[in-house]
Design a protein around this nucleic acid. Structure first.
Length: 485
RNA sequence: GGCGACAUAGCCAAGUGGUAAGGCAGAGGACUGCAAAUCCUUUAUCCCCCGGUUCAAAUCCGGGUGUCGCCUCCA
């Protein structure tokens, strides 16, 4: 497998710290609001990375943190008259609602800052002891001039950064780029005792402390959005490597932004779309499919038209799955089941291409292309062979179905049951069943009309159903229906 | 001011030296009572522009134009 490493600016062969194991840390959200689509991209992408490692047989240790102590949370809590930690907790709950909907698997560990104050204080203490940090009025700052590697991730020198002169000058700091490890308490803020007085952690120290605690030194992959390269990840490296004297993480992966009219989606610009608002208009599988349709390092421009186009594409894959299921329904693979050699070798090719795509820096866009190729092979085969008439040769079709499931295991687009069946949204199943029965009834009536060549009635029923979002399809084997829009 | 990324058909989007995946939209055909779905065929002589390297470049190098990002909270 090859991974683009921000640290070296090139694709490198992935060599795990320990054979067969991979430890991944991804920077999670600061929980003071619902997540927007820009937040969802890394969540979905790195979930896919993790799934692929598992698919490749790795033992995966996956950690994603929550920042539950932060200026923005404190401000928000003040506005709402709430307790900051309670507010953060509430939004962690909301986060899981959105992430679950997008079929994001739970991380092995979801550490929170508030639960790791001891580790953080210990790490800050080490940095102070080793003279990488200094105290001013109860604040503790990291001294960037003491760490020779500062800037290696973002590819800048301290001189480069200061040329911008956008850093506010704080005379108390040794260098304008020095950043807070520990902030002294202010009235009304959550605070903890420390050797430097009451206070709370700075933003960057938490990830160094928690990643070191759970994943250890020199762990495999650290991920997050491009905007975290500097200063967040640069600072994480400076803290961890100064404290341990060892490399922090081996591979740094950063996803590109979601844009709106080619401009970064961000809270400060106010051009963001909340995941739950999008999910009120489109199925979660469409959103996930859309997010994975572009390579993770490229920007992805969002608007509802593009989501609609993705929905139509996904529809094609679902149709193929449905046709396949219909063809296989009631058939068991027995002794008479022979593979179709031509189809088999095509399937094999597609599988290899899929894995090759994923091996090459997680090229999910190409991988999805392979899903379309698979759909075309299946559809074309069923068409050519007039399949429901053929009792044998189902072995290859079963293999094709298995491939859909395997691809889905990695991409996580459809929710699947334990048996690998791809399920539809299973809310309100009872109502659902009634609706289905009613539609079947209407279809029966329409079939009678058709037998009587009463086309106006038949067409009217079909048109009315269409208005209600139910599309009918007449086929030689009977009538099929599906939801539309 | 410093650093960096990107520019592929009407739209979205892979492809980083060997002669342009895939999807959406469009066109023609098969199938159909008409549709839908599906299948088949078709849609970029060419990958922002100009130079260079090479037997060979969308892909490498130099220059230009444009768009975006980071340098401040941000996924």
């Amino acid at each position: 497998m090859r991974i683009y490493n921000t640290l070296t600016r090139k694709k490198e062969e992935f060599i795990p710290r320990q054979p067969g194991k991979v430890a991944i840390y991804v920077c999670g959200p600061t929980t003071y609001n619902y997540i927007h689509l820009g937040n969802a991209r890394p969540i979905v992408f790195f979930d896919t990375v993790r799934r692929y490692f598992k698919y490749r047989g790795f033992n995966v240790l996956y950690a994603q943190n929550f920042t539950d102590i932060d200026d923005k949370i404190i401000n928000r809590a003040r506005e709402e008259g709430d307790d900051p930690l309670a507010l953060a907790d509430r939004y962690i709950g909301e986060y899981f609602k959105d992430a679950d909907a997008l079929n994001v698997l739970r991380a092995d560990i979801h550490p929170k800052v508030s639960g790791h104050i001891t580790e953080i204080i210990e790490l800050v203490g080490t940095l102070v002891d080793k003279d990488f940090a200094y105290m001013v009025d109860g604040d503790v700052y990291y001294n960037v001039r003491k760490y020779a590697g500062y800037g290696k991730l973002s590819g800048r020198t301290l001189e480069d950064m200061q040329a911008g002169a956008r850093v506010e000058v704080d005379a108390r700091k040794n260098d304008p780029m020095d950043f807070a490890l520990w902030k002294s308490t202010k009235p009304g803020e959550p605070a903890w005792d420390s050797p430097w007085g009451e206070g709370r952690p700075g933003w960057h120290i938490e990830c160094s402390a928690m990643a070191l605690k759970y994943l250890g030194i020199n762990f495999d992959i650290h991920g997050g959005g491009f905007d975290l390269i500097f200063p967040h990840h640069e600072n994480e490296i400076a803290q961890a490597e100064a404290a341990t004297g060892q490399p922090f993480a081996r591979y740094w992966m950063h996803n590109g932004f979601i844009t709106i009219n080619r401009e970064k989606m961000s809270k400060s610009l106010g051009n963001f779309f909340l995941v739950r608002d999008i999910l009120s208009k489109f199925a979660p599988e469409v959103v996930r499919f859309y997010l994975l349709g572009t390579h993770y390092r490229s920007p992805l421009d969002f608007d509802y038209e593009k989501l609609a186009a993705a929905q139509k594409g996904l529809e094609r894959i679902k149709t193929s799955l449905r046709l396949l299921d219909e063809a296989l329904e009631g058939r068991e693979s027995g002794d008479e089941a022979r593979p179709d050699l031509a189809l088999d070798s095509r399937l094999e090719e597609i599988l290899l291409e899929f894995e090759k795509a994923m091996d090459d820096d997680f090229n999910t866009a190409l991988a999805i292309g392979m899903m379309f190729n698979l759909a075309r092979e299946v559809n074309s085969y069923l068409q050519k062979n007039d399949f429901p008439g053929l009792a044998e040769k189902i072995a290859s079709l079963q293999k094709a179905r298995q491939m859909f499931v395997r691809f889905n295991c990695v991409l996580g687009i459809f929710k699947t049951s334990a048996g690998g069946n791809i399920l539809r949204e299973d809310k309100d199943m009872e109502k659902e069943r009634l609706v289905e029965d009613l539609i079947d009834l209407i279809i029966e009536i329409r079939q009678t009309a058709r037998q009587n060549k009463d086309w106006p009635t038949a067409d009217r029923l079909r048109d009315r159903l269409k208005e209600l979002g139910i599309a009918l399809e007449d086929t030689p084997d009977g009538v099929r229906w599906k939801r539309q829009g």
